[in-house]
Simulated scan of single mutants.
Amino acid sequence: MKAAVLTQADAPLSLEERADLEPSGDSVVVQLQAAALNRRDFWIMQGMYPGIEFPTILGSDGCGVVSKAGSPAGEKWLNQEVIINPGWNWGNNPRAQSSAFKILGMPIDGTFATEIVVPVEYLHKKPSHLSMVEAAALPLAGLTAYRALFTQGKLQSGEKVLVSGIGGGVATFALQFAVAAGAEVIVTSSSQEKIDAALGYGAKFGYDYNATDWVGEANNQFGPVDLIIDSAGGSGYGALLDLAAPGGRIVNYGSTAGPPPKLDLFKVFWKQLHLIGSTMGTPDDFAAMLDLVDQHQIKPVVDETLPLSAINDAIEKMRHSTQFGKITIGCQG
Rank of each mutant, 00 (worst) to 15 (best):
Q176V: 12
A11W: 13
D264R: 07
W77Q: 12
S235E: 15
G330M: 03
P107L: 01
K102S: 03
T114H: 11
L273H: 11
A113Q: 03
L37T: 06
L15I: 15
L175W: 14
V30G: 02
R95C: 06
G74N: 06
I103P: 01
A9W: 04
G258P: 13
P139E: 12
A135M: 15
E159C: 13
D20Q: 02
V185F: 10
G182N: 13
G236K: 06
A245R: 08
V251D: 05
G258V: 13
L265V: 12
T188Q: 01
S190E: 00
Q46Y: 08
K102I: 06
K160V: 10
C63R: 02
A211I: 09
S321V: 08
H274V: 02
T172H: 06
P94R: 06
A244G: 05
M280K: 06
G247P: 13
Q46P: 03
H274W: 05
N79M: 05
Y201R: 02
P72A: 04
V29D: 00
E134A: 15
F54S: 01
L13D: 11
L308G: 05
P119E: 00
W214D: 02
P86F: 07
I108A: 00
F177E: 06
M106T: 09
F150E: 08
W43S: 01
A34M: 01
A73S: 06
F150R: 05
V225G: 00
A135L: 08
H274E: 00
Q272V: 09
T111Y: 03
Q8I: 14
A73Q: 09
L265I: 15
Q297M: 05
D284M: 03
E193A: 15
V268Y: 15
V179F: 07
A180G: 14
F266K: 10
D208V: 11
N92G: 12
P307G: 00
L13F: 14
W77P: 14
V120W: 10
P94K: 01
G74A: 09
F177I: 12
S309A: 02
A137K: 03
G330A: 15
I329N: 00
I103T: 03
G25Q: 13
F324H: 10
L140C: 00
M132I: 00
T282K: 01
V185R: 09
G87V: 06
L292D: 10
G206I: 08
A287Y: 12
A113M: 04
G168I: 12
